[in-house]
Design a protein around this nucleic acid. Structure first.
Lengths: 242, 242
DNA sequence: CGCCCCTTTTGATCCACATCAAGGCGCGCT
DNA sequence: AGCGCGCCTTGATGTGGATCAAAAGGGGCG
């Protein structure tokens, strides 16, 4: 947000320079990308691409948050991913998008036309390596989320979600920071496979139990990190039951 | 299955030659792979790798079916993927596995030691291209499954699952073929985020409704393909509501 | 053939979460 | 200040699927 998006912004000073698909690129490669990129912004709530749309551009999220979701005929919606700065939208070698992409906050994308981009990818292993790495990470995250959707209780889902948020913006390890829910209750519900009422109720329960404390509807602190983790159902990592 | 797994089987005659990670390799590249590969077999029910295990080998499923799953401390299990012939196990650039891999039927793998394999991948774009493509396909499938787990009813889940099975072994378009459920009721339940009782009940319902007909517990025919698709909840593809 | 074991079906009951419904709070706009 | 509108909370009720329980196929094996 505190990054000036002039049409010809320098990749060097880009906030996602070291995490996005260009992370491994050297200066020469960056030049090539810089020549074909363009920025595009969307206001909160705006659709970015609809399922089935022609995939004219592929892009990286530079700032803001977008969602990847699917809506069934009768309106039931499931979010299948959150797109944060450095995340990639679109896939090389595919003509259309399979999910809806929507701006949740104001969003700025760094875009490339797909066709020329595909050629670049073929020529620049530094990009394809990074795209593959990111795809594999996403795949892992998606599978982790499948466990949540298929087997966790409402309470566990909420706890896991909050832990995710907290882990995201915890740079200095578990300091007593204020965190912000980037989503409305309804969006959280669509992310967790719940209703907004259940989300609200479970948040209230955890507040009353003294696990979290809200400053307002969106921002909160962790009061009892241990209890939060306990509630998430994630443990038994390595098993260690002998 | 009708493929002789001598230690030095010829890649040329391999049943997954044109779909696995080696799909795009030329003869020279195939030679290189052939030199380092080895076969490994597992009996139905045997674990192949446990979550957290050192990822010594990466492999492709040559024959049989394996599952990728996660079990929570209290025993709740969610399958996050089915591994069919040509599917890949393990990921380059990661030390450990994040899910349990289990042989569902007898399984034969074509294995490579991870370290040397990673070097190969770096040198052979034909492999990394294919690995990326397969990872992106998996990612799409995983997200599709997230919609099922998060938002579909038991009936829709079952219908979607059966459609998947049918689509798998339908080469001649919707002929009146016998299909086989490759999983027990419990495994289906773990795949769909249900209990085995619910799976059994929903299958009974669809049988009574004349949508499917069972020859025995595992093999069945589709009686009413249209109704099956109707029940899956998958539609509104392009939307077209104007 | 008969027994045991495992998978599956079916029935009865329960409960977590959905659904339906009614306010409450904060914010922008006039 | 007062109003309207989104978002959120909380309460009352309903229900789909889980859980508990029992019995019905098979299939392998002595």
């Amino acid at each position: 947000m505190n990054f000036a998006f002039t049409e010809r912004s320098d990749c060097e000073s880009c906030p996602i320079r070291h995490r996005a698909i260009c992370a491994r690129c050297d200066d020469a490669e960056l030049d090539l990308l810089e020549r074909t990129k363009s920025y595009m912004s969307y206001e909160a709530g705006q659709p970015i691409i609809w399922r089935g749309d022609d995939l004219v551009h592929v892009s990286s999220v530079v700032s803001g948050i977008a969602s990847l979701s699917r809506t069934l005929e009768d309106g039931r919606t499931q979010m299948v991913g959150l797109l944060l700065p450095s995340d990639f939208i679109g896939r090389p070698g595919r003509e259309a998008v399979d999910f809806d992409v929507t701006a949740i906050t104001d969003v700025t994308l760094c875009r490339f036309e797909r066709k020329p981009f595909e050629r670049l990818v073929d020529e620049m292993p530094h990009i394809s390596q990074r795209v593959m790495e990111m795809a594999l990470d996403e795949l892992n995250a998606a599978r982790e989320w499948m466990v949540l959707l298929g087997r966790k209780t409402a309470r566990e889902k909420i706890a896991t979600f909050i832990e995710m948020i907290v882990r995201r913006d915890t740079v200095p390890l578990h300091a007593d920071i204020d965190h912000v829910l980037p989503l409305t209750r309804e969006e959280i519900a669509n992310f967790l496979g719940l209703t907004l009422e259940t989300v609200s109720r479970q948040l209230s329960v955890m507040r009353k139990e003294g696990i979290i404390a809200f400053k307002d509807r969106r921002s909160f602190k962790i009061v009892d990190l241990e209890a939060l983790h306990q509630a998430s159902g994630d443990d038994g990592d390595g098993g260690m039951i002998v």
